[in-house]
Design a binder for these strands. Structure first.
Length: 435
RNA sequence: GUGGCUAUAGCUCAGUGGGUAGAGCGCUGGAUUGUGGUUCCAGUGGUCGCGGGUUCGAGUCCCGCUAGCCACCCCA
């Protein structure tokens, strides 16, 4: 026997019925994006390595050890995108989107790639849904964007998530803070865990993020970025907080919240959920006022964006659904069970017509009626139409409601009337999906 | 990259102190006429992750590899 080929480590096949949940998440996102006037952008999965070196940062983990890179046949250095903000800004500059009217509000969804050790909620190919608003540094935009993320989660019936908020300062005040932090760490680092001793040298901000119990007392004494913001950053952050309060969006200031991408400035935030394991962040984002210039824009283009980890979001929703005893059901409107040769042909024609009326229809070609009804039941059909000799003679259909077993004779017009579908809305999509 | 745990049928798992494979679910069919969910019967399905070692004999013990999961790290 030949060896079986399996999915590459850290990648996975998404199968039904879970894919229905993925589609639901994406449909809800698109709808919320529409309401906030975001439009879709699709950028390539392949990018020049230097795009990420310059944006995410040369020294970051993502660039130094997690990125999938390769040399193309012509010698160019390419990478599978580890995130999408850099690509969006690249496209913004490349296509002079600054010349278009108003703010550029763009959203994306698709696979990203990072070569990490897989674990719960962490995959080498993972999916992000994100949005970027480019062209303004107003705190009103920050508040609107955060509001948008919260509305997406609410629309997905997700509760009990936490919004963590911080400001990481700007090009002026952050370097000064880092100096202060380094100096404060020098005398105390030796009392901390080995990881922190290392981080005190390499990446002092990470010390603030340490989870070791014994280090917490030391960490509490360290200066926080919030005490070292410049006047403009402090005002910006204060206004963002006030605007979130106005919107009744609860949040928690987390001065120790650190982002692993170098381009972040000022507002940063993260949304976590307890139903996940160690990888508890389902969304993260922040402002990046200097990124466009870093990527070669002649004009400054301040922006802010976020990204939802779709894998993790789906994971949370799935555990919530099982906890509530709800399950994912295929949304089959109708099963057609023909009895006899003639009926099969009529069933096929009927299916064609009903499908044109946007009904989800399955036909049982062949088999005894008993089998067909059993199949209809197992496929989750809400109704079954029986077409046999009697029905053909009378020009009627037998419509059986599967949950009650109630059965009536109808014409095709009456059938359509009973099964008529309404247009899409999120709540209905959810109730349809979550039987 | 580091560590811990795990690996038996499509899925969830049993398999006692080493004696060459089992259940439930699933899938297929049956219980006479055109009526599903329950029940009953039968069938299908595994070189026990891979490679080596110990042994008369290994799913079971030992070693190595690989993969999966969880955690560190990092992040969404």
């Amino acid at each position: 026997m030949r060896a079986v080929i399996r999915a590459v480590k850290g990648t996975r096949d998404l199968l039904p019925p879970t894919t229905a949940l993925w589609n639901h998440v994406e449909a809800v996102c698109r709808e919320v994006f529409r309401r906030y006037n975001y439009q879709e952008i699709r950028t390539p999965i392949l990018e020049d390595v230097s795009l990420f070196v310059r944006s995410v940062g040369e020294e970051t983990d993502i660039v130094t050890k997690e990125m999938y890179t390769f040399v193309d046949r012509d010698g160019s250095q390419l990478a599978l995108r580890p995130e999408c903000t850099a690509s969006v800004i690249r496209a913004y500059i490349e296509h002079r989107l600054d010349q278009r009217p108003g703010l550029q509000k763009l959203y994306y969804m698709g696979p990203m790639f990072r070569r990490e050790r897989p674990q719960k909620g962490r995959y080498r190919q993972f999916y992000q849904i994100g949005a970027e608003c480019i062209g303004s540094e107003s705190p009103w935009i920050d508040a609107e964007l955060i509001e948008l993320v919260v509305r997406v989660l609410e629309a997905l019936e997700l509760r009990d998530f936490q919004l963590l908020l911080n400001s990481v300062g700007c090009r002026d005040c952050r370097p000064a803070y880092l100096q202060v932090l380094r100096r404060a760490l020098q005398p105390v680092a030796s009392r901390m865990c080995v990881n922190c001793q290392r981080r005190a040298e390499t990446n002092p901000l990470r010390v603030l993020d340490c989870k070791v119990e014994a280090d917490q007392a030391v960490i509490e004494q360290l200066p926080t970025i919030l005490d070292h913001l410049c006047d403009r950053c402090r005002e910006h952050f204060a206004l963002v907080q006030r605007l979130l309060e106005d919107r009744q969006i609860s949040f928690q200031i987390q001065p120790r919240l650190v982002r692993g991408l170098d381009y972040y400035t000022r507002t940063t935030f993260e949304i976590t959920h307890g139903a996940l394991g160690a990888q508890n962040a389902i969304a993260g984002g922040g402002r990046y006022d200097g990124l466009a210039e870093e990527l070669g824009a002649k004009q400054p283009a301040p922006g802010i964006g976020f990204s939802i980890g779709e894998d993790r979001l789906v994971l949370v929703l799935e555990t919530l659904l099982t906890k509530q005893g709800r399950s994912l059901e295929p949304a089959l409107d109708l099963f057609i069970a023909p009895v006899g040769e003639e009926a099969v042909a009529e069933a096929a024609r009927l299916a064609s017509r009903l499908r044109r009326q946007s009904l989800a229809v399955e036909v049982g070609y062949g088999g005894k009626l008993k089998r067909l009804l059993e199949l209809a039941h197992r496929l989750g059909a809400r109704h079954t139409v029986i077409v046999g000799e009697d029905e053909l003679r009378q020009g009627r259909l037998t419509l059986r409601q599967m949950d009650s077993g109630e059965q009536i004779q109808v014409t095709e017009a009456e059938l359509l009337d009973r099964l008529a579908r309404r247009s899409f809305n999120a709540a209905e999509s959810a109730s349809r999906l979550l039987g």
